[in-house]
Computed example of a mutant assay.
Amino acid sequence: MSERQFDPERYTGMPDGTYVPSPQLIKNARMLIVGYEADPEVLESALPPGLDPHPNNLVQMNMYRVPSAEQTSHLDPYTLTYLTVEVADRDSRAISAAQGEIPVPGRFWVGYWNDSPQMQAYTREGGGIPTLDGACEWEEADGELSSTLSVDGTPVIEAEASVGDEQVDTLTGHLHYYAHRQIPDPAGGRAQINELVEFPIPFVSELYEAEVDRVDFDFPDGSPFQRFAPVEPLSTPSVLHGTVTFTYSQGRRVRDYLAEEASRGLSSDVSDR
């Protein structure tokens, strides 16, 4: 399977029958979100113009399931795993029942795997999120949770955590997510859309005990995602395990790279005269 988001030679727009209106509501999705330290040089190289890595060098990895359409406003059941790089100077605010108001760094999507064709089209075409096909499976027994992302039937990310059934906190607020939305011109040869998009996502979450035991990456040789593996020894300064209600919000454009390129070209033409 190609890990490119689009093939400019074949792209013809969103497939028929996959349009879903925005925003969409998700209720009580059970998530395991692990914030782990990664290679700072990798994180910096993955960000588009206008975003800088946060000094904490964290990747936020979310693995979750939505097993019933009744948990959504207008979506099929799906599972999802994503990787985001935390970015500087883009904080949102959340309120913890235990800690009060806390800042939450913005997050830029660098990997996103989903097993619903409907969701793949919705997130990729509508938001520019780098969506690929992949399935997340959970196994839980005796307080041990194992979550596995498989691509083409092969496990590529595995996370294990010791979890409890006692609620330890309630967290509410907004999160700022970012995507580099690139849509090639169907005629080929150039981009039709090239922009940085911000998604302010509101959420309400009930948090339960969790301690991460391991996070393993095993992508095939040459995969660009292996470089986002945790550094050794594993460091996980933030862990969230619980149920989360949130929206897939409509994004707002914060950078238009095509307009900026055209403006630079115009300025250059004027200065050359």
Rank of each mutant, 00 (worst) to 15 (best):
M1P: 10
E3G: 07
D7T: 09
D7S: 11
P8V: 02
E9Y: 12
R10F: 06
G13L: 01
M14A: 11
M14H: 06
P15I: 08
G17M: 13
S22W: 14
P23V: 06
Q24R: 15
I26P: 09
A29C: 14
R30K: 14
M31C: 15
I33W: 15
V34S: 11
Y36C: 09
E37T: 15
D39R: 14
E41M: 14
V42Q: 10
L43N: 00
E44M: 10
S45A: 15
P48F: 06
P49S: 03
G50V: 03
D52I: 08
D52P: 04
D52W: 13
P53V: 06
P53L: 00
P55K: 09
V59K: 02
Q60V: 09
M61S: 13
N62F: 12
Y64I: 02
R65P: 00
R65K: 14
S68G: 03
S68N: 13
E70S: 15
D76V: 09
P77G: 10
T81K: 00
T81H: 05
E86K: 13
E86Y: 07
E86Q: 14
D89P: 01
A94C: 09
A94Q: 10
I95H: 12
S96V: 05
A98C: 02
Q99A: 11
E101S: 11
I102P: 00
I102M: 14
I102E: 08
V104H: 07
G106W: 11
G106M: 00
F108T: 04
F108W: 07
Y112H: 14
Y112R: 07
N114T: 11
D115Y: 04
S116G: 10
M119F: 10
A121I: 03
R124K: 15
R124A: 10
E125T: 01
G127V: 06
I129C: 09
P130K: 06
P130V: 02
A135I: 07
C136N: 13
E139D: 13
E139G: 14
E140F: 04
A141V: 08
G143H: 12
E144N: 10
E144T: 13
L145S: 02
T148W: 13
L149Q: 01
V151D: 00
D152K: 11
A161F: 01
A161S: 07
D165H: 08
E166I: 03
G173P: 06
H176C: 03
Y178K: 01
A179G: 10
I193H: 10
N194H: 12
E195R: 12
L196C: 05
V204I: 07
S205F: 00
E206G: 06
L207F: 05
A210H: 01
D213T: 09
R214F: 08
V215Y: 01
D216Y: 04
F219I: 06
P224H: 05
F225W: 15
F225P: 00
Q226G: 12
P230A: 06
V231D: 10
E232L: 12
E232K: 11
P233T: 06
P237Q: 05
V239F: 02
V239L: 04
L240Q: 08
T245S: 14
T247P: 00
Q250H: 05
G251T: 00
R252W: 04
A262Q: 14
A262S: 11
S263N: 13
L266D: 12
L266M: 12
S268K: 15
S271V: 09
D272P: 05
R273Q: 12
